[in-house]
């Protein structure tokens, strides 16, 4: 039986204080490794905090051995794979809200957030550049897709990752809690839980979401990390509003069983999608 022990680290962060956040990462990595986890996932912008505004250019880390922060994370990744959120800067000095997958001392993948929410309480497009690639990648634990928060509110990035062979979708987020009403959980928590469960079912894949906790100014972040299996069943959930390390053993053979029952990926008509997409773009292209 092929297994993966997944650790979701829903942590608080210090806003703009890389050293303190890195120290917390290393502590959680040690905890996860001691519990025999194979992969630990941290939330969006886990090395920097979220509400950065004009701090963005001053909290850049580069996902290379030369970077003093990534060097330590890459060393730690010899024993356990790591997903971390950080501010990335490219050669043209564009700043990205990014996530990196580290394994055995190497950076296997960097995803620059493609959809930057810039409306309502969000202002990311003002401070970050838009990523322009959505790619699945191979890891020792299978083929994985990595998305950051608003990326998975759009149906197309998880869809593309599914077609690109991802069997485990890793979502990382910093979701501001809102919609306090008579329910036992915030509306924002229910919204995210609905869509992550739907992706697991629709794409017959494992879907994990690691959302952070804590407060920044008046925002609260609600945590509640989840992992759903390819049947859409909830395997584990972290607590709301508290730091936690949620560790779950995934039976990766479930992919085989679910996809035998429900061959959605086999039957997906990508040629048809492409033809219709091209027609829509031709006819209504200006709208996009």
């Amino acid at each position: 039986m092929k297994k993966l022990t997944l650790a979701l680290a829903q942590i608080e962060t210090k806003l703009g204080v890389l050293e303190a956040n890195l120290e917390k990462h290393l502590d959680y990595i040690n905890q996860a490794r001691d519990k025999n986890a194979n992969l630990i996932v941290f939330p969006e912008l886990s090395l920097t905090g979220y509400l950065l505004q004009d701090m963005v250019p001053s909290v850049v880390t580069r996902p290379t051995q030369d970077d003093p922060h990534f060097k330590q994370l890459l060393e730690a990744s010899e024993d356990i794979d790591i997903v971390v959120g950080f501010v990335n800067e490219d050669d043209r000095h564009r700043f990205f809200n990014s996530a990196a997958y580290l394994s055995k001392g190497k950076v296997l993948h960097v995803h620059n957030k493609v959809y930057l929410p810039t409306y309502g309480l969000f202002d990311e497009g003002r401070f970050f550049a838009w990523g322009d690639q959505i790619r699945a990648f191979d890891t020792p634990h299978g083929r994985i897709g990595l998305l950051v928060c608003e990326d998975f509110w759009h149906a197309s990035p998880p869809y593309l990752l599914w077609l690109d062979g991802a069997e485990l979708l890793l979502f990382i987020s910093v979701s501001p809690g809102r919609g306090l009403n008579s329910h036992e959980e915030l509306e924002s928590a229910r919204w995210v839980e609905h869509i992550t469960q739907a992706y697991a079912s629709l794409y017959t894949s494992f879907v994990a979401n690691c959302n952070r906790v804590g407060y920044e100014d008046g925002f609260n972040f609600w945590g509640g990390a989840t992992i759903h299996d390819p049947n859409g069943e909830l395997l584990a959930q972290g607590p709301y509003h508290e730091e936690a390390l949620t560790i779950t053993e995934l039976d990766l053979n479930q992919l085989h069983r679910t996809r035998a029952r429900l061959p959605l990926l086999r039957d997906e008509r990508t040629g048809l999608v492409t033809r219709e997409m091209n027609r829509i773009l031709a006819e209504r292209g200006r709208a996009f």
Binding site: L180, N181, S182, E184, G214, Y215, D217, N220, Y240
Partner: peptide, 25 residues
């Protein structure tokens, strides 16, 4: 129009806000 709120959740979020935001300063 339903302005009812869950008191336990409200207390958790608001007390946490006081504790954490004071602590940050």
């Amino acid at each position: 129009i339903d302005l009812n709120l869950n008191p336990e959740l409200a207390t958790k979020v608001l007390a946490g806000f006081i504790r954490k935001e004071l602590g940050r300063a």
